[in-house]
Amino acid sequence: MLDRLAEHAGLEFVGAILKPGVWARDQVVSSWNNYLDLVGVREENEALREQVRTLSQQVQVASEERAELARLRALLELEPPEGWRPLGARVVANRLGPQAALESAIISRGYYSGAGPGTPVVTHEGVVGRVYRAGPYTATVLLLTDPGSRMAVLSAVNRTSGILVGTGPRGLLEMKYVPQNARIEVGELVLTSGLEGAFPKGVPVARVESVSQSDLSLFQTVYASPLADLEALEEVLLLERPPVQPGARTLPLPTVNATQGVGPGTGRGNATSGHGGAHVQPVSPVQSGQQGTRALRPQSTPPASQAPAPQPSAQQPGRLPGNRQ
């Protein structure tokens, strides 16, 4: 109850103090930038016109490819993944106060405006983390560099899966549980795997920096650097989960208590154990078969109303894990 009180009163209070100042600062910076932009605007205009021409050509090509993709999907009787709705948010502060022991940032959206606990947070560069605690209109994001952050990932080229774990401030990310015989290369991109439904599949997260093998371990030691510049976050995108379709068969899945948020892990336990401070309770029904993942699903699947009820398991897709991504 005290946590809830602190989130509703304290966090909102901090947000209310910081947001007007950030807005005022932005106005001043924007006015100054507008003035500066007048200088050399003609050259920039020419460059932009050229860019528009190039992009128009690319859009045409992309449209063709998109049409081809739709045809191939129809051919394979697959339906496209449900879309995640992006929502912009401003970072109003990074670690703030003596209690900010975790790698975190405060953003200008809360659970009334699309930033419920567990919501993925990204930038145009890559994944930032996910919402940890949320007040009505302000929320705290747990960055992926926090030692408690866990994220199911796979490499872009070799499709090697693992769990991406933070190693602390300004540190690299460690990709754990990569078998010794699995192929993964330095420089390869690491993407979200979409497992557990915490993130849509295929969002870039990091780039592999080093790969080494040990005789003492069953797994390779893989380090990667985050693509997003977590030290200089200003604006982020929240990926809101696909809405539950009316009339769809629902399965009561455990989800995260809005007052407790998504707890970071210990860094000591099993990466899939899901313990570590999160308070989960079965409150939010999530659409069966959809469950927030972007995995493709055959259209020939029996209607949801006829399908057998899935058995809950520790690895259910769509579950908001207590402390694992």
Partner: peptide, 14 residues
């Protein structure tokens, strides 16, 4: 309330 709300630990340390 301010410090606990802005923090990332459970209520108590402040």
């Amino acid at each position: 309330l301010v410090q606990e709300g802005a923090g990332t630990l459970a209520f108590g340390s402040t």
